[in-house]
Design a protein around this nucleic acid. Structure first.
Lengths: 225, 225
DNA sequence: TTTTCAAATATTGTCGACAATATTTGAAAT
DNA sequence: ATTTCAAATATTGTCGACAATATTTGAAAA
């Protein structure tokens, strides 16, 4: 069920995972300089594996490296986030279209069950914000698996997912959007049930556009302060 | 005009570029084991920078690494190529949609001029295959720039472009497709001129679907031999 | 001959040291 | 006080050596 299974082989992989976590959660601030010696010491390893980890994170767009001048945590300004959501819209839309023709009936049924659980959790107000983000995550992950496209799963479940979490962790959420979001999820499942890939894609894209609009407005409002 | 400007700072970057080139051109066969010591010696550097290069190439999906067992050139089977074209369809479609509302009139006009040159080159049969692939490359690159989306430019101009070249370099090309492809390019420019993003996206997606269909059929035919 | 398994070999993973480059510091000049 | 610039410091880039792991080899048993 988890998008990022925690398998850690080499020290470079360990460092990569720990750094990614620190970056996504905001423990390491955006734009912060990443000192190799300091980080290597903190992780109890040499600079070799750490440098490999930084290369990997650069590929995931979580850090920005400048030759001979080191690495910094990426800065997610509004333009960057806008770009991210446009890419996500395209990829998740495609994933949804593919899933419509490739998911089994059982998988679609499970997706529907997932939404039932999600709805109950919302009504009980049981840690709503948590449930929203978790429920949304699971929903998108199931559809992604349904696309049967390994490259899509890799991109969306990897770098795109981490960047998305990073966005979410530093913008306030609109609690008013949980309900319409759930309804949109329902609509998508309906389209999947009817094997209507074209509609499923359109609905998924609208869903993501809505998410961006919500976040974008939040940012604009905060800036006025 | 070039999708991959050859800026090389550190030795790891040099190795990365040289390896990527060798892989894309087929000088290094698919599935081939990449021996660190051997490659480091060939490039006249230590294993440190080379390992960083391999990490980078892994992120670009040009090599597949297994902890403690080394790296191999990625194997592009038909399913992988199919996945690639689905991802490209989604991303290039989005790029084209965005370009429709963001390109300047001048940029669109230049795009039209580009197609005129392309048409002439085809009629003169001046190295047709070269012209086709080069012309197609420039066309897509210009639209990509027009999207004004740095992340899209990065993904499509980077890893996706290299993987696409890798596909093209090991599948025979259908000369019969140059004409319809040019016509599709013209249609796309027309949609861009009218600032019809929705149509531009649809046309670009069809264009890429057509390319995949052509390649896919070639592969199927070759397998019958 | 084929299979098994341990020794031998090869390869990857890691570290510490040094070189190359960037950044900071602080004294001298304006 | 501000600016300039060179020395001092800090940081990144690179290499070679060794440790850990995987792969191969070849002798012994079935």
């Amino acid at each position: 069920m988890y998008p990022t299974p925690p398998k850690e082989g080499t020290l470079a992989d360990v460092a990569s995972h720990r750094l990614a976590h620190s970056i996504v959660t905001g423990e390491l601030a955006q734009g912060q300089k990443l000192n190799e010696t300091e980080l290597a010491e903190r992780f109890g390893m040499g600079r070799g594996p750490l440098r490999e980890a930084l290369r990997h994170l650069e590929g995931m767009r979580l850090v920005k490296r400048v030759p001979n001048a080191g690495a910094r945590v990426v800065v997610l300004d509004q333009k960057t986030m806008s770009d991210l959501y446009e890419v996500r819209e395209a990829l998740e839309g495609m994933a949804c279209r593919l899933a419509a023709s490739r998911m089994t009936e059982q998988e679609i049924a499970q997706l529907s069950t997932l939404l039932d659980r999600h709805e109950q959790e919302i009504e009980q107000q049981n840690g709503m914000v948590y449930a929203q983000s978790e429920g949304d995550r699971d929903f998108h992950y199931q559809i992604l698996q349904g696309s049967r496209n390994a490259m899509l799963m890799d991109i969306l479940g990897g770098e795109q997912y981490q960047l998305l979490r990073m966005c979410r962790n530093r913008t306030s959420h609109n609690a008013l959007r949980t309900r319409p979001a759930l309804q949109q999820h329902r609509q998508i499942v309906a389209a999947l049930s009817q094997r209507d890939g074209e509609l499923a894609e359109i609905l998924m894209r609208r869903h993501i556009q809505g998410a961006w609009q919500s976040i974008s407005e939040m940012i604009d409002n905060e800036e006025k302060t």
